[in-house]
Write a protein that binds this DNA or RNA. Structure first.
Lengths: 344, 344
DNA sequence: ATGAAAGCGCTAACAT
DNA sequence: ATGTTAGCGCTTTCAT
């Protein structure tokens, strides 16, 4: 904190403004460039962000609010985002949204957004739990760009980067159907959360497209927690007519469901075929290898950061945009081919 | 960003300095207090952190670096910390440390620390992966207080807040022993990581105290990842003489181990008794309920924040401190009483 | 208790 | 290409 641009100026016998210009990528005579670089190095000069921010009305800080940091998918997203932002000279102020905690009831998203705005972020990356944009009021008023993750863009409010969950969900359920499954259980995510609604929709649509009946008993209302995944298997297994396949719609429910499956001694895929949204390390390792829909996490982060970066720099082209990324299905060994079985 | 302290001054017909004083908790005549509060409210004034920081050489920002955000324990820690810090007026700049990624090899901790220091954090909360303090050089030189989590305090360098892992580990292994187990498998964490070493020590010490032999084959070298947990069961189950009990030393290895257990159709506790470090939602729900060592997460966060807060405010009493918290064992149903079995 | 004024480190407009 | 200078919003002496 001690050495300032002034010191560098003195050291190099140049004007403060020349140093400033250099720092910000301006043109400087070659000889001076060297001198300045040396001086900066020797002195260990680091620009003072506070001073810079005071002038430029920028903090070079991005606020990120998102829940469920305890699952691999989210953690990876945070990690990627942080890296990309840092490479662009931004740091990340992070607010985790409690998933199971009191947060979900009180939904203090607006409070958090306002807090970050007051602290002076240049942009916001938000993963909301429902499509409700009250919390964006101050961001809009103060023209702080917002990119929503796992949501569509909103006219006049925010851009959105999301994965085509309906498609991914459809594809994996279709895969089950094509393997002869008719009774397919599913544990859904919280109502109003776009990804959850889409994954449910994909399931329903696939069933309908293949003329299959949709039984209420097979659609378990969950909330993306491991516990709800666990309960869903519990519930399905208590049915007289058990499903032959199961679709866990996110990482956490998948873990929970697998636990119940272990507990009940259910065999995959002999007793129950199993597919899941969100791929993870173990999914490809455990036996049988789990068929899963993988989200392009790096790409999501990249698109969101890129878009936010552009907005923060005044590029408002195509606002609001909705970037929709395709997930990828990994077909592995957790689905039993019922037709095959019949033949045997 | 528009309304400043100046506006408030004008609005109230008071001097800027009076407003400033009020904001910072100084004494103001009752009548003025009211006027100021009203004006602030009406105008929606929020102090500009950059300007304030420029004067005070403070950013009211704390940097946090920690890995493994994908497990419940870590996620909860981040969440708690963020909350506590915010209540004290600090925001959190977060850098996740990739666990399985390239980070673990290159170990760019110093790079991250320096980055945060350059960005001007007032304090640092770090969970290092090994006891190596090179990365603290700049923090020390610039007198930026550091509280290490999951580490001891270091003379002249940093305070430490940690859990007595040796004790917790000892206790839970002792529990196994007292239930008649002699062949106890364990999957350890990365060498050099204090918590991992301590948990290993607790295991060894308990075995020694009860005069039990320690077999190399039962001590699987892991790295706190789910995969290593999975592999450890795989390995142990391939032994001629399988263990009767297993100790997963953290959340991730526990998940991985449970997966392998499902896959191999191993029954808990009939075929294998199971205990784990780090308690989690499902542990108490699945059958059998898992015996687990729970870390006092809220307390850890509280102690770390409190200590860091004191340091940031110049209180250097007892530096460096090492705060050691006791974990708690939850004895549930995943351990078979072998004596009982003999009787039967 | 309140006010006037200096200045934190930097950027940007303007002058050279 | 480089230099001079005003001022961003705030805290902090120092007066009053």
């Amino acid at each position: 904190m001690a050495v300032t641009i002034k010191d560098v100026a003195k050291e190099t016998n140049l004007a403060i403004s020349t140093i400033s210009k250099f720092i910000n990528g301006g043109n400087v005579r070659e000889a001076n460039r060297k001198k300045i670089e040396e001086a900066i190095d020797r002195l260990g000069f680091v620009p003072n962000d506070a001073a810079r921010g005071l002038r430029t009305f920028r903090t070079y800080t991005v606020g990120m609010i998102m829940g469920g940091a305890s699952n691999q998918h989210t953690a990876a997203l945070i990690s990627e985002t942080q890296k990309l932002l840092r490479n662009r000279g931004y740091s990340l102020t992070f607010i985790p949204l409690g998933m199971a905690e009191e947060d979900i009831k009180t939904y203090r998203l607006k409070e958090y957004v306002d807090y970050l705005i007051d602290r002076g972020v240049d942009g916001l990356l938000i993963t909301p739990m429902k499509r409700n944009i009250d919390f964006l009021k101050n961001a809009r008023e103060q023209k702080i760009p917002v990119v929503m993750m796992e949501e569509r863009g909103i006219e006049g409010e925010a851009d959105g980067v999301m994965v085509d969950c309906t498609g991914g969900s459809y594809e994996v359920v279709e895969h089950l159907i094509k393997n002869g499954h008719r009774k397919i259980g599913i544990v859904t995510g919280p109502r109003g959360k776009l990804t959850a609604d889409e994954r449910r929709t994909g399931y329903i649509r696939a069933m309908e497209d293949y003329g299959l009946p949709i039984y209420k008993e097979y659609m378990i209302e969950g909330d993306y927690t491991a516990l709800s995944g666990y309960r869903s298997i519990e519930q399905l297994w208590s049915l007289n007519e058990r499903p032959t396949a199961f679709f866990a719609t996110n990482y956490d429910t998948c873990l929970g469901a697998l636990e119940a499956i272990r507990e009940f001694g259910i065999r995959i895929p002999e007793d129950l075929s199993f597919v899941t949204f969100d791929d993870f390390d173990l999914a490809a390792v455990i036996r049988p290898h789990l068929t899963a829909v993988r989200q392009p996490i790096a790409k999501i982060a990249e698109m969101a950061c890129e878009l936010l970066y552009r907005r923060m720099n005044g590029d408002t082209a195509d606002f609001p945009r909705t970037i929709r990324l395709k997930p990828e299905c990994f077909y592995r060994d957790s689905v039993l081919d019922l037709y095959d079985r019949e033949k045997v």
